[in-house]
Design a protein around this nucleic acid. Structure first.
Lengths: 220, 220
DNA sequence: ACGAAACTTTGATGAGTGTCCAAATTTCGC
DNA sequence: GCGAAATTTGGACACTCATCAAAGTTTCGT
């Protein structure tokens, strides 16, 4: 149960092999996004990339291994995208946080992200490996947001910054099933993005040390 | 494709039959929550409620039919819970909105809701019937929230009220994969609930007609 | 260009799936 | 209680699934 979270190693030694592995991973991601976890089958993956079932099974002897390598690949990809978006030219911390919010919400509108993350959230319910990788990814997201929150409002404690980061991140991710790709209220995304970009920054700026504790205490 | 959204009729005529159908639906929900959509199998449902496969198959000749009746059952259940929570004693509109927020976030922490809705969001990606029922449910949630938003800030247009309701609802639902049952930051839920209960109401009160349009325009 | 190792093909295996059916049993209006 | 209809049983069907092994083919260091 615990060892299901250890990292697998990516197969493919000869150049032909690595090309095949690339094709398999690409096809696997496509199946997951286009057809969902239900259809995520060695056979369907093989068909999608024009390979034989036995061949896919040779490179990934266990299906779980394909899932794990694929997920690592996906997450690395998203983390790179995140790193890249953060490395923006001279901007104020406020503008940087605004930019991160806009980029996140924009990305959520892509078919890839909308489908992928809803599937991952569901799979994380009963798969420790996926749960851990998803957690680790969002921990990085919270760190990025938290860095700007701290700079915008240096008076806040680390815990308060963390809480605010989670709140902002969760609020954004929550748009996925409602305002994401092909979702019922997708047309409202520009307005929601505008509200988010403006109001989350106001929230960060106006929050005072002790406010969260006071609010939490009052609510009980 | 379009007709997959038409409602099925619940089987069971004799009392014994209805009892069996009840047992099947209860078992089906349990399997979905405890083991996930991947394990949602006629055979597993039958085993869970101690019935024979053929018997389940008699009452629900097609698996899709079981899914549809189950989903209608679930959604009706949630809508009743929502109605009940709204019908609270003499409170101000502000307190009512606060209460709805607290109740929603509290419910999200239950294993049932955390697991169920993450599964439904994923299934909605490729199943029109599920997508439509989920949409219809959240439309009702938005209506409830919107009613109080409108009363708290009567100056807002219907569209602005709708946008704010979606924003509040999406923000709350976004806590599911991160702060829900058994999720990594579940311990932060009290603080997030406190921030939400206070801040969303401030947002509603301070929003002025035209603000959303102005923010949206400025962002582009 | 030899040969070991990597890759691919082919076919088979056993478990699991949804669906169906005929016969046995139970229910309930009359 | 009779009897038709509803329910339950047990088994069967044709699939798809992940996995495997043995035999071919290709690659690439030497």
């Amino acid at each position: 149960m615990a060892d299901t979270e250890t990292a697998p190693t990516r197969p493919g030694i000869y150049s032909r092999g690595t090309e095949t592995v690339d094709a398999i991973l690409k096809a696997a991601l496509s199946v997951l996004i286009e057809e969902g976890a239900e259809a995520f089958t060695i056979r369907r993956v093989a068909t999608t990339c024009g390979l034989r079932v036995g061949n896919v099974s040779y490179h990934f002897p266990k299906k779980e291994m394909l899932v794990q390598v694929l997920l690592d690949d996906i997450m690395e990809n998203y983390e790179n995208k995140l790193e890249l978006s953060v490395r923006q030219p001279e901007l104020s911390d406020e503008d940087r946080l605004r930019l991160v919010i806009v980029i996140c919400l924009d990305d959520i509108c892509s078919k890839r992200t909308t489908h992928l993350f809803t599937e991952l959230w569901a799979l994380a319910n009963h798969n420790n490996f996926i749960a851990e990788r998803v957690r680790s990814f969002y921990a990085k997201v919270h760190d990025v947001i938290g860095e700007y929150v701290q700079r915008i409002n240096p008076a806040l404690s680390a815990d308060e910054v963390h809480t605010l980061s989670i709140f902002i991140s969760a609020s954004m991710e929550g748009t996925t099933p409602f305002l994401g790709y092909n979702k019922p209220w997708n047309d409202k995304m520009p307005a929601i993005t505008a509200i988010s970009a403006s109001w989350f920054i106001d929230l960060v700026k106006s929050m005072k040390p002790g406010d969260i504790a006071a609010l939490t205490k009052r609510l009980t």
